[in-house]
Design a protein around this nucleic acid. Sequence first.
DNA 1: TATAATTGATTTGTGCACAAAATATTTGCT
DNA 2: AGCAAATATTTTGTGCACAAATCAATTATA
Lengths: 146, 146
Amino acid sequence: MAKKEFDFSTMVCFLLNSTSNAMIRDYRPQLIEFDLTYPQYLVMMTLWNEDAILIKEISKETFFDSGTLTPILKRLESKNYIKRVASQEDERAKLIQLTEEGINLKEKTAHIFKDMECKIALSEEEQAQIVKICNKILVKLEVKES
Amino acid sequence: MAKKEFDFSTMVCFLLNSTSNAMIRDYRPQLIEFDLTYPQYLVMMTLWNEDAILIKEISKETFFDSGTLTPILKRLESKNYIKRVASQEDERAKLIQLTEEGINLKEKTAHIFKDMECKIALSEEEQAQIVKICNKILVKLEVKES
DNA sequence: TATAATTGATTTGTGCACAAAATATTTGCT
DNA sequence: AGCAAATATTTTGTGCACAAATCAATTATA
């Protein structure tokens, strides 16, 4: 077989993108049962970690920019999983709070989170390698602080 | 600091997605100079590897489904980088061919491809680890054959 | 204390990514 | 030959991802 000039199977950006697309696609059916998309699920996890935070704090955790978050939060609000409350100290800012239903979702979706990591069954070593390499790239591209 | 239940910095799906987003975002300015997006650039690379192929073959290489490819190919056609020619053997299928301008783009964008891999400066070892792990996941999720 | 600069969030517009349905053609079966 | 199943692509509709522009509120500064 003639060697091809552009070998996708060794291109970092292509591999990361294809693999993340594949994982998000694979878990879509499970999330759909709770009327969630993957980015919406990430925002919910952020709030399960710490409730009643500002949009810019969610942005810092998820790396989603505000233009991405605004519509995601609107959808979560229309599903009654969160509330958007104007901040008292700063009229520009908005506090995002879980509703009762949003809080309850944490237990109900716990198995999805476990599946998320289990299905691909990486070894401890591989897991550690991925974490190290991705975080290194994120720091190099100034998405994260070192 | 209280330990958070959901630690994004060790979640494989989140890391792969954030890192690929960051890489694609980072190289956008360079691609814009040639009026290309990252997915469009991938399709062009596929054609630089082998010209005059069917859409389903591009789909097999890039892992983009046909509903994703159709509009990408339309945009590349309107930029005059490719032509879409009905196949003679099978009236359903379409052959995608590079135009003169599309062929010339290969040399002009060669530096971008090099930057793509160089800027993040992974070691040989890290590069090999990423390739192995991502391909393993892609096989597990049945995107690729083992 | 005006006003300039900054900040938090929303809006607008483009382009994926994907599922599901539609369309047209080809292949397989009897 | 006739018709069902399969195949290649397009269409439709939803939801990111992001840049750029906008808006309102806050802070800094002349």
